[in-house]
Computed example of a mutant assay.
Amino acid sequence: MDRRRYLQALGVGSALSVAGCLGGSDGSSAAIADQTLTVAAATTVNDSGLLGDISAGFKDAFDTTVRAVVRGTGAALRTARDGNCDAVFVHARPLEDEFLRAGHGVNRRTVMGNDFLVVGPPDDPAGTAGSDPLAAFRAIASNRATFLSRGDRSGTHVRERRLWDEAGVEPTGNWYRETGQGMGATLIAAGETGAYTLVDRGTFLNTETDLAAHVARGLDDPPDLLRNEYAVIPTNPARHDVAYALAMAFVGYLTGPGQGRIETFRVDGERAFRPLARSEEPDFDQYVPAEWAP
């Protein structure tokens, strides 16, 4: 399918038009100057407000065009698998591993992290406040308190399903509802219906609702079940005609000067993410599927 028609059919999340200055596939600046970088980005990156900030920074640094197709992580990876974007910016390691093992993406890099929160009505009818996430999920189920799931194979939905599994609960019944929508829309719906939901910190801070965060362990060192890691992965240029040089420039920006932008990004004065790309001892596992062995 023609990518221009594909993007028009989907609806493009953002477009920033400028001129390029990086070397293209033939090594020349001119080869990249007229190209457009298409990034399939998780809805949480967009709904937090960070995507626009990062895109503006990339525009200033490289003077090129960026288009963002905003989707849940599963759909974003499918966009790359079909050759309809140059890179993905996502946050579901199990789905990323499938994508990498199948050879659809190359050169994965960890970019940043934050944490997941269990949020719900301020009066907390299920009594979740201060609990660990598994106890909170069990309390929601035992009290049959309304819970809204994204139900869309996004990064947040993948983590939610892991929490139910580890809590030993199969959520069924009228109290458990799937929205099939992005994080911001799901959070607003939870606020309007007095429901609980699982949300990333960035979207929670950037979305106005009456919901309270009942399970929150902090941005800097959350427990594994609440840790939320984001990565950038270029689409494999051996399989699709993609703007690979621009995709690698985006990787370089996110893991280089973009780290400072992520560190200083605030929502109403509060930190929403923490940069993770810079380390004197980089983690080899970030480049390959988890539990990889030669």
Rank of each mutant, 00 (worst) to 15 (best):
A167I: 15
E166H: 14
S149D: 15
L7T: 05
A249F: 11
D132T: 07
F147D: 02
G194I: 09
P282T: 14
I32Q: 09
W175M: 05
R71F: 08
T44N: 09
A139L: 09
T255K: 08
P94G: 02
G194K: 02
R153V: 03
H214Q: 07
D221W: 03
W164I: 03
E192D: 15
V267G: 06
R101C: 02
L22E: 10
E166Q: 15
V70E: 05
L95K: 11
T65M: 13
Y176N: 13
S154W: 05
T110A: 08
D241R: 10
E96N: 09
P122S: 15
P122F: 13
L187I: 11
V106E: 05
T43C: 09
G20E: 03
T197E: 01
G155H: 09
G155I: 11
E166T: 13
V215S: 00
L51P: 02
V106D: 00
P237R: 01
H104V: 00
G180E: 09
R109D: 02
G105I: 00
S14K: 03
G202W: 03
I54K: 02
T65P: 01
V215M: 03
A126R: 06
D26N: 12
E280F: 08
D210C: 09
A290H: 06
R201C: 03
R161V: 13
D268N: 15
L51G: 05
V111Y: 11
F204P: 05
S17R: 10
G258R: 14
V215G: 00
G127T: 08
E160V: 02
I140N: 00
E280C: 04
F99G: 00
G13A: 13
F58C: 04
R239P: 00
S14P: 02
